[in-house]
Amino acid sequence: MNQGGDLSDPRSVEQVVIEIVARSLERTTDEVTLNSRFWGELDAESLDMLDIIYALERRFRIRMPRLNLLQRAVDLFGEDVIIKGGIVTERGIELMRVSMPEVPAEWMKPGMRIYDFRKVITVGSFVRVVERCLEAVDKLRCSRCGGQPEGVEMTLRCTGCGMPIELPSGEQLLVQDLRIYAQRLSPPLVEVQTGLRDEA
């Protein structure tokens, strides 16, 4: 698998993510598992999350999403469908469960408050997102000549014609996936038009 920044690194994405998380939070790698939750369990602050995302981006040469998945779901499928009165709906929970398979299903229950949602994010969630971004980078081809991209520091360039190639946006990837997962629910979730623009 493409290891992004350092191709010779034999360690798995899992190992590297755990190391980066542990280093940032000043813990040993034994204390950090795929199931460790950032909030509460690992006692991370929001600045830690930014710090970790930044380190992952540089290490793997990817662009991580910085989105609130639940908020994006609201934008796509409508207010009352995903969240009602500040509480995540049953449909909302269903969607989050399929979107975040690494989070034990019992952590996400109907009746959850929107503000409690971030508390379920685990180290495994980061591994999944990193792998998703790496997969997209693997599939990238030059739009002009179809050549393979080659990475130099944080940028990509076509090995054929030398044209710069933009790194895929992690945010767009996750929104894309959210749409696919929504179709798999029964009945599928229907997209609505909101007045708010998706900046990504």
Binding site: L50, I53, R63, M64, L167
Partner: peptide, 8 residues
């Protein structure tokens, strides 16, 4: 593009 270039 630049988010990954600067220490946040």
């Amino acid at each position: 593009q630049g988010t990954s270039l600067i220490d946040p």
